[in-house]
């Protein structure tokens, strides 16, 4: 998606070097429709520059900082040297993500989607999530719930969720904890199994959380949680251990959660 307006001073933009002159380089801005900026030779790199071509090539994709925008003169001043490595990597990733999101929009609504509808949907996602990519990612993790505050039709929401679920690879975090469970009853193993099933959530764990409970060495069982972020993962881990402990405690047993694996005393 290309924006129709102008970039803001201080904003990082992605562009392709179009022309190289002795006084600087012209950059076509990939994110803005028909916009071109100039990066003066003094803003291409730090230190004395003898030849601009020693630092940049035509056709090269660069990340630049917007220094000044003069809409009446149709001029955008850029700086390449003011962008550090970290900013460059982050911006490129963001730009790639938006290109992906652009693709997903086509997958969700078809190639013949008119510009007006496209812009309306895109603007809703931008307003709610800050970027189209974040909107799709959120839809992949939380499903329809993620889009409940977005002013889109039921069909549009379904299309976004479906496409997101099929295409977005969600950045999960994984946390591990342990729960010691023991039960003195005559059918103690069944109660332990019931407790472990409860730890796994009995099928009632939210879609974005994956829980796996496995045996380590009695009475110790490992709980592994995969979730979109650490807060969610940590909460799910403790809730899982609590559910297991509650089951065994109801049958005269004991349950105890701990983060690190116990030292094997065997």
């Amino acid at each position: 998606m290309k924006y129709s307006g102008w970039p803001e001073p201080g904003e990082l933009v992605v562009g392709k070097i179009d022309e190289i002159e002795d006084f600087g380089v012209f950059v076509d801005l990939d994110e803005y429709e028909g916009k071109r900026g100039l990066c003066h030779i003094s803003e291409v790199a730090s230190g004395w520059i003898k030849n601009v071509r020693d630092h940049v090539n035509e056709g090269q994709t660069v990340v630049a900082k917007v220094l000044d925008v003069d809409e009446s003169a149709q001029q955008i001043d850029l700086s390449i040297k003011d962008v550090n490595d970290h900013q460059r990597k982050e911006k490129i990733q963001e730009w790639k993500n938006e290109q992906k999101a652009d693709n997903w929009m086509e997958l969700a609504f078809g190639e013949d989607l008119d510009d007006e509808t496209y812009a309306a949907i895109a603007n809703e996602l931008l307003a709610e999530f800050g970027s189209m990519y974040d909107g799709f990612e959120s839809a992949a993790i939380h499903g329809k719930d993620a889009l409940e505050d977005v002013d889109l039709s039921e069909e549009e929401i379904d299309a976004i969720v479906q496409t997101a679920r099929n295409n977005v690879s969600v950045p999960y975090v994984q946390v591990t904890g342990y729960v010691d469970l023991s039960c003195p009853e005559s059918d103690g193993v069944d109660i332990i199994k019931e407790a472990l099933q409860a730890a796994e959530g009995n099928g009632e764990v939210p879609d974005e959380i994956e829980l796996e409970v496995t045996y380590v060495g009695s009475p110790e069982y490992r709980i592994q949680v995969q979730a979109p972020d650490y807060k969610t993962a940590e909460d799910a881990l403790e809730e899982s251990a609590d559910r297991a402990a509650k089951v065994v405690e109801q049958h005269g047993g004991s349950g105890q959660f701990h983060r690190e694996r116990s030292e094997d005393d065997e």
């Binding site: 193993v189 099933q197 409970v213 045996y215 380590v216």
Partner: peptide, 16 residues
């Protein structure tokens, strides 16, 4: 004995 092996899931857990 405890005959269960590390990594066993709850549905395959065996009694002592």
């Amino acid at each position: 004995f405890d005959i269960n092996r590390p990594g066993t899931t709850w549905d395959d857990l065996m009694g002592g």
